[in-house]
Design a protein around this nucleic acid. Structure first.
Length: 813
DNA sequence: ATAGGGTTAG
């Protein structure tokens, strides 16, 4: 019966007497995919057909057949919910021998999700006593790999084995595909090797699995072997191979595959062409990507997404947004969640908050707002645009959070200068039983670095070893940074030496580590090693190297490498490099040279450049130049927070109290706030912070008492309060009191009280350590026989006495 | 076929 005649039957109100007629009507609807007509038949069946149900076994049977057909119709028309509702009304007794209908239903879920329902249905099928067929397994296993449900999949593998179906080519290929997609490449390979007849599909499953997990050499090896046994790679093989080539950045291999596609005329296939486009982008060949894109006859939504993504990968962010606009103008396609995610990442890269907010609105309208991937991208976009409060609120309001959500907020907090909150969220993450993965840890270690939270960092290191992350280069880079900033330069070097593969970040991080420890010669010799083994330094390397020279007083070497940078390494110095040089010359006491250097710069000096010089004026007590530089900073406008403090301190130290007060008043009038000097110490994983004169700590009384005791002992050894560091005009005795309650000393005293005497005390400070505290610490270390170490956070505000960022009392300063 | 979170410098 055709659909048109079916419509006639229904609209003529002629009586459909027998359910068999319904079956024919529905079959007509399936053939023409006519959902509307199908629903009308369904209504009739419900009204009239019910009368027939339960009358005779015969009609009952045919009703079941009609319901079976209806289920198929709804599946064909992508109406999964309707299909399921009809499916559930078919009595179990009528479904026992109908494996095909079960398979169809499971396939529908495996195709569009929710995957859980495919697995539920499979289990229900077994419970109802229906024996799965070889067609059942590919579907239910696809659902398992979609959910990465390894354990469930293994159980299903057992079922198949018991039914003797695992030797079937289809089932076995499905199993290989499942194991490979879930990362169980060894199991997949075992099954593959034991197969008696491997067809192209089986090879493709194995290749796709290796490629997906970035196993480049395995992937290419399989591709070669497949041809050796006489099989010809098809377009699916090519599509499977491309991601591995892209990830491994092997352009030559990518071109070879492209050539193969041309010969086989695969390149006209949208999927193949999109794969090629993406591969070229990952090899940073944007122009090739664009050429593939431009000559494509058919482009679909994925193609556009891939091309826009290609621009984002290659840092052509503006071009990505332009192409997106062009696509919207052409008007045929509406952006998917994946594409919106890509656009949001472009906004984040450009810190284009208004555009990001606009896309956020769009995701709400289009409903893909609920997609967890989109949620995470939005979260990260807000964090990268510096709107951490919005990011936090967004995070709290997210319905479901996964590892990525936590990783994004943790690194977001660190990026926005709130490392303490990052550690806090990391702890919450563990309480909510979401396991930190590799990327989480890469975000977590910098939080430890910022707080010098060595215990947290070392725990994270242990966890990373257990989880097998420490073979990863980025993890090791983060560890080098963490250990060196927590004062453990030796461990940092150990991590560096043990690394399987070092990239430029590893070398830079290690050089910085030496720099902040005042080990300029080690930094230089590492730089030398780097060159002898042929590692090309980048622009960051020179910033690291110059700052290392600066903090070790290696002015000559610094100057040499600054000029060599552009002459021998073809690296054009940026403003940052010039800043390092001003800092280097200034610290070395070459104030005039530094000043001349600023005048000769090809850039307009900004606040940071002048501040570097001003700090040098403070170190070398050059009031005249200090005043001049300070005026320059004031003329630059209200960016120079904190510089008033520097100038005021210069006056105070010289006893020019009126001038100092004048600067302070000016600062107040300009509405600047000085960030308070703050010191902290980590005790059993808890960070305790103190500001000067702080009495808010629960153990404040004990701390004060300890300090008074120490003062007596220190005086016996010859300590004299260095009152020039008290920048207020008060009596000597008062000055001694103020100095005693500086945040540095509070933190040290608390460390002595709380930590086992055998344990070293690491005190971290956000600003320069006061010279009196520096001296006092040496006495305290001797009196208490403790290993006490400073850790300074701000590069520009290094240790007052030795001008190293990080300094141990044992150092000769 | 496209796809979320990540390391170094100032």
């Amino acid at each position: 019966m055709s659909c048109a005649s079916a419509r006639r039957v229904l609209t003529s109100r002629s009586c459909v007497t027998n359910t068999y007629d319904y079956v024919q009507l529905i079959e007509a609807c399936i053939a023409s995919k006519s959902l509307r007509q199908g629903k009308i038949v369904h209504q009739h069946l419900l009204k009239n057909g019910n009368n027939n149900v339960n009358t005779t076994t015969n009609t009952n049977n045919s009703t079941a057949i009609a319901l079976d057909k209806l289920t198929r119709l709804y599946i064909t028309c992508n109406e999964l919910e309707l299909a399921r509702r009809v499916f559930d009304t078919i009595p179990n007794t009528k479904k026992e021998n109908n494996v095909i209908l079960w398979n169809l239903m499971i396939r529908a879920y495996a195709w569009d999700g929710p995957f859980e329902r495919a697995i539920d249905l499979y289990n229900q099928m077994i419970e109802s006593g229906v024996t799965p067929s070889k067609y059942t397994y590919p579907f239910v296993l696809k659902a398992c790999s979609g959910l990465q449900a390894i354990e469930v999949g293994k159980k299903i593998h057992d079922h198949a084995k018991r039914l003797g179906l695992d030797s079937d080519v289809y089932v076995c290929t499905a199993l290989i595909d499942f194991y490979a997609k879930c990362g169980c490449l060894i199991q997949a390979r075992n099954l593959f090797d034991n197969m008696s007849n491997r067809d192209v599909v089986a090879w493709n499953a194995m290749i796709a699995g290796s490629s997906l997990h970035g196993m480049y050499y395995d992937t290419i090896g399989l591709l070669v072997q497949m041809q050796e046994v006489g099989l010809i790679p098809n377009s699916s093989t090519v599509v499977a191979v491309l991601p591995a080539i892209g990830e491994a950045n092997v352009l030559s291999q990518g071109k070879a595959v492209h050539g193969y596609c041309m010969r086989k005329i695969f390149h006209a296939d949208v999927v193949v062409a999109t794969g090629l486009l993406d591969m070229y982008a990952k090899c940073w060949c944007l122009s090739y990507s664009r050429r593939v894109f431009d000559i494509m006859g058919v482009k679909n939504e994925v193609t556009w997404s891939a091309m826009i993504g290609a621009y984002v990968i290659c840092d052509s962010t503006t071009a990505a947004l332009e192409l997106f606009d062009q696509m919207l103008l052409e008007g045929d396609l509406s952006p998917s969640a994946v594409m919106l995610g890509t656009i949001l990442r472009a906004c984040a890269k450009l810190t284009d908050l208004s555009r990001g907010r606009q896309i956020h609105g769009y995701t709400i309208k289009s409903g893909c707002f609920l997609d967890i991937m989109i949620g995470n991208t939005l979260l990260s976009m807000y964090a990268k645009c510096g709107i951490i409060d919005d990011a936090m609120r967004f995070f709290d309001e997210m319905d479901s959070k996964d590892t990525v959500s936590y990783s994004a907020i943790i690194s977001g907090c660190v990026q926005n200068g709130n490392a303490e909150e990052a550690l806090h969220i990391f702890q919450k993450m563990q309480m909510s039983r979401i396991n930190p993965d590799l990327a989480t840890m890469i975000g977590f270690f910098p939080a430890c670095s910022h707080l010098a939270a060595l215990q947290h960092g070392a725990c994270g290191h242990g966890y990373s070893i257990v989880r097998g992350f420490t073979t990863d280069t980025s993890i090791c880079n983060a560890l080098i940074d963490m250990y060196s900033k927590c004062g453990k330069i030796d461990i940092a070097r150990l991590v560096f030496d043990k690394m399987h593969k070092r990239d430029i970040v590893s070398w830079n991080a290690m050089i910085v580590g030496y720099g902040i420890h005042g080990l300029g010669m080690e930094a230089l010799s590492l730089f030398h090693v780097m060159q002898t083994i042929g590692v090309e330094p980048d622009d960051v390397t020179f910033i690291c190297l110059l700052s290392a020279c600066s903090h070790s007083g290696l002015a000559m070497e610094g100057k040499h490498w600054f000029f060599a940078m552009s002459e021998d390494f073809n690296i054009v110095p940026r403003l940052e490099h010039y800043m390092c040089m001003v800092d280097l010359l200034g610290r070395a006491g070459l104030l005039d040279e530094a000043h001349d250097f600023i005048r000769s710069m090809p850039f307009k000096p900004d606040v940071r450049i002048w501040s570097a010089l001003l700090s040098a004026c403070r170190i070398h007590n050059n009031i005249e130049l200090g005043e001049e530089v300070s005026n320059k900073i004031q003329n630059l406008g209200p960016e120079g927070t904190g510089n008033f403090v520097l100038l005021s301190n210069i006056y105070s130290a010289a006893g020019r109290w009126d001038d100092a007060a004048h600067v302070r008043i000016m600062q107040r009038d300009w509405g600047f706030k000085k960030s308070p000097g703050c010191s902290w110490v980590e005790i059993n994983g808890v960070v305790h912070a103190f500001v000067g004169g702080d009495q808010s700590h629960p153990q404040s009384a004990q701390i004060n008492q300890k300090l008074e005791e120490l003062l007596v002992e220190m005086k016996k050894l010859g300590y004299r309060a260095e009152s020039s560091f008290v920048l207020q005009d008060v009596e000597e005795e008062e000055k001694e009191r103020i100095l005693l309650y500086h945040s540095e000393k509070l933190a040290v005293a608390f460390g002595i009280l709380s930590l086992n005497p055998s344990k070293p005390i690491l005190v971290t400070k956000n600003l320069r350590v006061c010279g009196d505290c520096h001296t006092a610490l040496k006495y305290i270390a001797i009196i208490t026989k403790r290993d006490i170490t400073w850790n300074l956070l701000q590069q520009n505000l290094s240790c007052f006495s030795c001008q190293s960022y990080y300094c141990s009392y044992e150092l000769a300063c």
